[in-house]
């Protein structure tokens, strides 16, 4: 008996060691991505300029270029962390391996709300966009989940994905209908809809911070209840979780994160899908580890894809949105192929 307890304790200790190891690796990867993001780009600069520019000196062109890359890197880190965390929370709340703020149409809904705000209410401040995006994200998330969970079997991955796609087609149709007669905002909206962190500055980042902070806090606090929800609603209730409240709190956190990230960067797809799956391979399914890990690796992934986007199309740049789509779609297909049809 004590042998079993001992071996269980040893397994636990070993998995704890492994997780701490991966945590260190993740932090290193993130730091490395950040350094790369500040030093690589369309223009080659040497390391003295990098140090000077990163500390705020802008007296030469090379240093000014580096100084522009700093807020861009911070933006990518924040948006990536937000989307990775939101994706992990959504996969937990819906108990659905394919949940992603992009696939479920939540980001598209946020985008439509921002476009409506621009076109009909003359909204021009970022705080306005953020509130609009959060409202849009919340409405769309509720709508998609409601449609996807009607009928027998509850919210299966296939039903949710189809409901999300349908909603995405509908919102993009309405978004186009809104911008079509308004050539004045059309160009800006179109550039924003691809999704990118190109024009980021600290003025853009600052208003997002409170929303991101509250969203992250709500999400991280729901880790324990997400663990319980993973056992199924009945078991979670039996173990003392207040299922409806746990879901609502976690979902609110995810919506805040998606809304703020979408308002700042435009709708990015697949980040929230890829990151939690990768993290599950590394640290297992315990949400207390999974959530912070998803945030860390999400930040690293988006910074990395942004660097890639800058380097792939030199001397021009790609938008990070197109690169995440190309990185994410194969992972999505891989997940779909891994599972038996019954589970889909």
């Amino acid at each position: 008996m004590s042998d079993i307890a001992l071996s269980a304790a040893m397994t636990l200790a070993r998995s704890r060691h492994r997780r701490l190891l991966w945590l260190g690796v993740a932090v290193l990867v993130l730091a490395g991505a950040g350094v790369l993001s500040v030093s690589l780009g369309t223009r080659d600069v040497d390391w003295r300029d990098i140090v000077a520019g990163a500390t705020g000196t802008t007296d030469t062109l090379a240093r000014a270029v580096v100084a522009v890359r700093v807020p861009r890197t911070v933006m990518a880190a924040l948006a990536g962390a937000a989307l990775g965390l939101a994706g992990a929370v959504m996969q937990g709340v819906t108990r659905n391996p394919l949940a992603d703020p992009g696939i479920l149409g939540v980001n598209a809904g946020a985008a439509m709300a921002v476009v409506i705000g621009m076109a009909w209410f003359g909204m021009a401040t970022l705080t306005g966009y953020i509130w609009a995006a959060i409202a849009g994200a919340a409405l769309t998330a509720a709508f998609v989940y409601a449609i996807g969970s009607v009928g027998r079997g509850g919210a299966t991955p296939l039903k949710l994905a189809l409901a999300g796609t349908a909603t995405m087609v509908a919102t993009s149709s309405f978004t186009t209908a809104i911008i079509l007669p308004r050539n004045d905002i059309a160009g800006g909206v179109q550039a924003w809809q691809v999704g990118g962190v190109g024009g980021a500055s600290f003025d853009v980042i600052a208003p997002c911070l409170p929303f991101l902070a509250v969203g992250a806090a709500l999400s991280l606090m729901s880790a324990r209840s997400l663990n319980l929800l993973a056992l199924g609603d009945d078991a979670a209730a039996a173990l003392g979780a207040r299922v409806a409240w746990a879901r609502a709190g976690a979902a609110l956190g995810a919506v805040l994160l998606c809304g703020a990230a979408t308002a700042a960067c435009g709708p990015l797809i697949f980040v929230g899908l890829v990151v939690p799956h990768l993290c599950r391979l590394l640290v297992g399914a315990d949400y207390r580890w999974l959530l912070p890990f998803s945030a860390l690796l999400g930040a690293a992934l988006l910074i990395g894809t942004d660097v890639l986007a800058r380097l792939l199309a030199r001397p021009s740049e790609l938008d990070v949105g197109i690169v995440t789509a190309f990185v994410g779609a194969p992972v999505f297909i891989w997940i779909v192929r891994q599972r038996r049809v019954r589970e889909l």
Binding site: A161, V194, I322, F326, A329, V336
Partner: peptide, 22 residues
């Protein structure tokens, strides 16, 4: 599976179109 794979491919190509148009 066909539908889900199709959705993923569609999302990918949609971003190509949005990019080319922008």
């Amino acid at each position: 599976r066909l539908i889900l794979v199709g959705i993923a491919i569609a999302a990918m190509l949609q971003s190509v179109i949005a990019y080319a148009l922008a």
